[in-house]
């Protein structure tokens, strides 16, 4: 990993985040209030979970378009248990996480053992399957009255600071160490940089990929638990919300590439923050939701464009360095 270069790039994204914050602070005095900032963090948590899994998949040069639907499905599974009279919140969450992991494992297996082409197609299919399943298990109804233990992660705060975001910080630190300092973490970057060379170096790339997609499923399940705590309900119809694109955008803004081999937890965190600040700003400035969609869409296109420009700049720099 190029510490120096990714550092200088992240400086750019941090700057973008700071400029947005300054602009919002000037435009609306409520922005800098403690309660508003805490609500930004609370909103960030859900996307931060999804983006973690997405990042792993993107580093392998893959993608997981089923994270959003998986999160909703896992939440609805808990809702189904709730409706069926299960009272143990712990049991609900265990089932939720196992279900998320199973979905991710299936995504990984489709890709690596059944050799489906790009995961874009298989995970897009999985997204629809999960959407339908989420509606099936809930009977297309919203379900509420979850046990407190389930709602704790998404709802609780410590003197106003959301617990969900504390968990996110811990998760990001652990994942950062995992990606940068363990053999498996390094193998993920290698697989994304050159799958065949990595396989021929004796790394079981099929297992590495399956691991990434399974992790993505687990992260989606955690996101599902957070969403239940935050809203108090589960709703199968939410499976069509653009959660996946938010996660992808966060990763790409943070320096990941569709070509794989790149991306960091720090960058992804900044990407998540940029997106939630943007959404928060829309609300504060009472921008109507249609306009919000347009702007967010443009931001995502801009992020992908940045990915392309970044690649070209790097290629140019390399050419110049080689010419020297």
């Amino acid at each position: 990993m190029t510490k120096k270069k990714s550092g200088s790039f992240q400086l750019g994204t941090v700057l973008a985040l700071v400029i947005m914050c300054v602009f919002l602070a000037i435009a609306n005095k409520n922005f800098l209030s403690y309660s508003n900032l805490m609500s930004v963090l609370k909103q960030t948590a859900f996307n931060a979970f999804l983006a973690t899994g997405m990042l792993l998949c993107l580093i392998t040069a893959g993608i997981d378009l089923s994270v959003g639907a998986n999160a909703v499905f896992c939440a609805c599974l808990m809702g189904c248990m709730n409706k069926a009279g299960v009272t143990s919140g712990i049991l609900m969450m265990v089932v939720c996480i196992i279900a998320g992991a199973a979905v991710g494992f299936l995504n990984g297996t489709l890709l690596t053992r059944l050799h489906l082409p790009h995961p874009f197609v298989s995970t897009l299919g999985m997204k629809n399957v999960l959407w339908g399943m989420a509606l099936l298990v809930t009977g297309s109804q919203m379900i509420n009255n979850f046990p407190d233990s389930v709602q704790f992660l998404g709802k609780a705060t410590i003197s106003g600071f959301p617990v969900s975001f504390i968990v996110v910080i811990v998760l990001y630190v652990i994942m950062h160490i995992f990606l940068s300092r363990t053999a498996l973490g390094r193998s993920i970057y290698c697989a994304g940089g050159n799958m065949e060379a990595t396989r021929l170096s004796g790394i079981n790339t099929a297992n590495v990929l399956t691991f990434c997609y399974t992790m993505s499923g687990i992260m989606a399940a955690l996101g599902g638990i957070v969403s239940v705590g935050r809203s108090g309900i589960c709703n199968g119809a939410n499976a069509t919300q653009p959660y996946d694109t938010d996660a992808i955008a966060a990763c790409i803004i943070g320096g990941a590439s569709f070509n794989g081999g790149k991306g960091t937890m720090v960058g992804t965190m900044i990407g998540c923050l940029i997106i939630s600040v943007l959404r928060n700003g829309f609300t504060l400035l009472s921008i109507e939701s249609a306009i919000q969609n347009v702007v967010l869409g443009l931001v995502i296109i801009l992020a992908v464009f940045m990915d392309v420009v970044r690649g070209e700049l790097e290629a140019k720099r390399r050419r110049l360095a080689a010419a020297k």
Partner: peptide
């Protein structure tokens, strides 16, 4: 390049 190295890595 295709099978021996991960070119974008160190």
């Amino acid at each position: 390049k295709g099978q021996g190295l991960v070119l974008p890595q160190t």
